[in-house]
Amino acid sequence: MTFSIAARCAETGMFGVAVSSSSPAVAARCAHARAGVGAVASQNVTDPALGVRALDLLQLGAGAEQVIGVLRGAAPHMAFRQVLVVDALGGSAIHSGPRALGIWAEARAENVACGGNLLADPGVPQAMVDAFGRSQGHLGDRLIQAMQAALEAGGEAGPVHSAGMMIVRDVSWPVADLRIDWTEDCPVAGLAALWTRYKPLLEDYVTRARDPSLAPSYGVPGDL
């Protein structure tokens, strides 16, 4: 019911996850990222705890392959799960259990891991990896391009209704956590439009958190 990308920007060290599904509010369960640590997507009969555990293992020094190995050996019900991991050095690893739903597939390269289930075509994850590899610019732009490539390659077998994107960098909170939790229209297109609106404000929001005295005008009544 899901296709997703976990990725790292080699130039900036940002991490991000983008995901879309026929289920509501998919990003609330599937997208996990931690500044300076890594990015994880946990999906297919989802156990969000796997995302948290994977990030904890990365923070302790495990690489992406090691994390997947630990989860396979210790976490219950892994036959039902898909987990995508990208670590702080750009290593990537994926677990896709044999009981993943429908047509499922995975693809990865340095700095990126993509996977999906109930897909219209098994080539969807590779199309996402290829699009990410060709893309340039802000990590958010690159994640959106990968999601659009997934749709162009067929996407999910049925209509998708939710999408989300999380980005972390040099602060302790996500600098972007954007969600289309339900729509009858294309949630990936909605997410792209939301990112276009949010991107110019991202640095202002970080500045306001760090030092409001340096922030530009808020442009609201009462702003002195």
Rank of each mutant, 00 (worst) to 15 (best):
S217K: 09
A149R: 01
S4F: 00
D204L: 10
V45S: 15
T207E: 10
A120P: 00
R81M: 06
P221M: 10
L194P: 00
F15I: 09
D121W: 00
T207I: 14
V129H: 07
T196Q: 15
R53C: 05
E65M: 04
D141E: 10
L178S: 04
G140E: 04
T2L: 05
Y198K: 12
V52G: 13
C186V: 03
M147H: 03
G154W: 04
L58N: 04
A33R: 12
A127G: 08
S92P: 08
L60V: 14
E106S: 02
A93C: 09
A41H: 03
G69A: 13
G115W: 00
S96R: 14
R179N: 08
V37D: 03
A25H: 02
P122H: 15
G69V: 10
R197I: 01
G91T: 11
A35V: 00
A127S: 13
V85T: 05
L151R: 10
R108F: 00
G97R: 04
V45I: 15
A49V: 09
E110T: 11
M128Y: 00
D177A: 14
R134H: 05
S23V: 11
P187W: 01
G115N: 09
L50E: 08
V175A: 07
E203K: 14
A39E: 02
A209N: 14
A146V: 02
G115S: 05
R72S: 03
M166K: 15
S42G: 07
A79N: 10
A163E: 09
P221Q: 04
G140C: 06
V124A: 07
P212G: 08
S20A: 11
S42C: 06
A41V: 15
L71R: 02
S96G: 10
A189Y: 09
F3N: 08
G13A: 10
P48G: 07
D185W: 15
V171R: 11
S213G: 10
I180A: 14
L84V: 01
L178G: 03
A100S: 15
A28M: 12
A109S: 14
E110M: 06
Y218H: 08
L89A: 13
P212A: 12
D141V: 13
L57K: 07
H161P: 12
I180K: 09
L201E: 15
G13S: 05
S23I: 05
S23Y: 04
A6D: 03
G38F: 01
D211G: 07
V220T: 13
G16L: 08
V86K: 10
A79K: 07
I94P: 13
N44R: 09
A62R: 10
A33W: 05
S213T: 14
L143C: 03
M1R: 05
P125S: 12
G140Y: 10
A62Y: 08
G36H: 03
D87A: 11
M14Y: 11
L194R: 15
E156R: 03
R142E: 06
A193V: 03
A105M: 06
W195V: 07
S92W: 02
L214E: 06
Q126R: 05
S22A: 15
P174M: 02
T12F: 07
L57N: 04
A75E: 14
M14N: 03
L151K: 05
A93D: 11
M147V: 00
W104I: 13
G154L: 06
R34L: 09
V168Y: 09
L84N: 11
A192R: 04
A100Q: 07
R81L: 05
L58S: 06
R208E: 15
R208K: 06
V26W: 01
N117V: 11
E203D: 14
